Simulated assay, not measured.
Amino acid sequence: MKSAEDVRTENLEAIIRDMAGGSVAELARITGKDPTLISRWRSKNPKTRKVMSHQTAREMEKALKLPMNWMDQDHTATALPDAVPVVAYHPEEPLEDGEIEIPAINVLVGAGNCIHTEPVREERRFRYSTEWLQRYGLRPDKLIRHKVRGTSMEPFISDGSWITVEMGTTQIVDGNVYLLRYGSQISVKFLFRRYDGGLIIRSFNPSEPDVVVPIQDLEHIEVLGRVVESTNMLIKPVK
């Protein structure tokens, strides 16, 4: 495992390469740091090398408009075997061969008690390869993305996550996750069949009790689709 010092040094090299055009002098100009000091952070000679402090790392992040603690995170994960790099794209870019887009519905769906739908103030489109769809037997015309609000499914599905729903897949398989309408609420829950024909609506969060729906009340439940994927964000937006 890399030390914090090694990680900061690697990130410093990446910053010089990608944000300062390979120039220590340019990085010194951007950050206000002494170029000699920057060179000492990079030095491989233990006699001249200086360790970048925690405070300095935070100052560098602020000057470079990087997220807090960015300097302390290993950003070389794509060098691991079989890792696939993330590729950014502009919304107006045409789809590549073998890609499809799945629309995102502009409502939040609940993962909690008494949570109603509300508009999503975020525009997203999600690209998938046709090979991925074929592997899981999914049809693109049945897939919709929704954003989740609530904590009852955490940490399995976090508050703010996006989920992919296979709309129209309503046959209940015990333990699968579904998008369902219960009265005026739209929720994301595990579903289980009861021995008497009723239904158990279950959250992942153990603090949330099961909801038991007797068979005579099933008319108030509408299963909208099966959740086939979730995307959890582990950080907050920076702007």
Rank of each mutant, 00 (worst) to 15 (best):
161 S>F: 00
136 Y>L: 14
238 V>M: 14
170 T>W: 04
219 E>H: 15
125 R>K: 15
197 G>Y: 10
178 Y>I: 04
54 H>R: 12
39 S>A: 14
174 D>S: 03
22 G>T: 14
125 R>L: 15
77 A>N: 01
69 N>A: 09
165 V>G: 03
158 S>D: 03
28 A>C: 05
172 I>P: 04
8 R>E: 04
170 T>D: 06
122 E>G: 11
215 I>N: 09
168 G>C: 12
57 A>H: 08
79 A>T: 11
223 V>L: 07
171 Q>F: 11
37 L>C: 01
49 R>N: 09
151 T>L: 06
6 D>I: 06
118 E>V: 00
132 W>H: 04
225 G>S: 09
227 V>D: 00
87 V>I: 15
110 G>F: 05
189 K>W: 02
193 R>M: 12
125 R>P: 00
175 G>I: 09
79 A>W: 14
42 R>S: 01
141 D>H: 14
6 D>L: 09
60 M>N: 01
38 I>E: 02
138 L>S: 08
27 L>F: 05
225 G>D: 11
182 Y>S: 11
197 G>R: 11
20 A>V: 06
53 S>R: 02
52 M>C: 03
22 G>I: 09
163 I>A: 04
6 D>G: 00
70 W>F: 13
154 E>A: 13
13 E>I: 12
159 D>I: 13
62 K>H: 11
108 L>P: 02
80 L>W: 05
90 H>T: 12
101 E>G: 06
61 E>K: 07
5 E>P: 00
136 Y>N: 11
60 M>G: 03
66 L>N: 07
142 K>T: 15
141 D>K: 07
227 V>L: 14
183 G>Q: 13
115 I>A: 08
168 G>F: 12
95 L>M: 14
107 V>P: 00
100 I>D: 09
157 I>N: 08
238 V>L: 14
37 L>Q: 10
197 G>E: 09
204 F>M: 14
187 S>V: 10
172 I>K: 09
4 A>V: 12
77 A>D: 05
4 A>I: 07
49 R>F: 01
65 K>N: 15
215 I>L: 08
194 R>W: 01
205 N>M: 12
64 L>Q: 02
116 H>F: 13
51 V>Q: 08
66 L>R: 06
62 K>Q: 15
103 P>V: 00
173 V>A: 13
47 K>T: 14
204 F>Q: 13
231 T>Q: 13
232 N>F: 08
55 Q>N: 03
220 H>R: 15
238 V>S: 11
179 L>F: 12
187 S>P: 01
80 L>E: 13
41 W>R: 03
194 R>M: 10
125 R>E: 10
189 K>Y: 05
235 I>M: 14
154 E>M: 05
229 E>G: 03
201 I>G: 11
142 K>Y: 03
103 P>A: 02
214 P>I: 10
198 G>A: 03
133 L>K: 10
232 N>P: 12
116 H>A: 15
63 A>P: 04
24 V>H: 03
154 E>F: 02
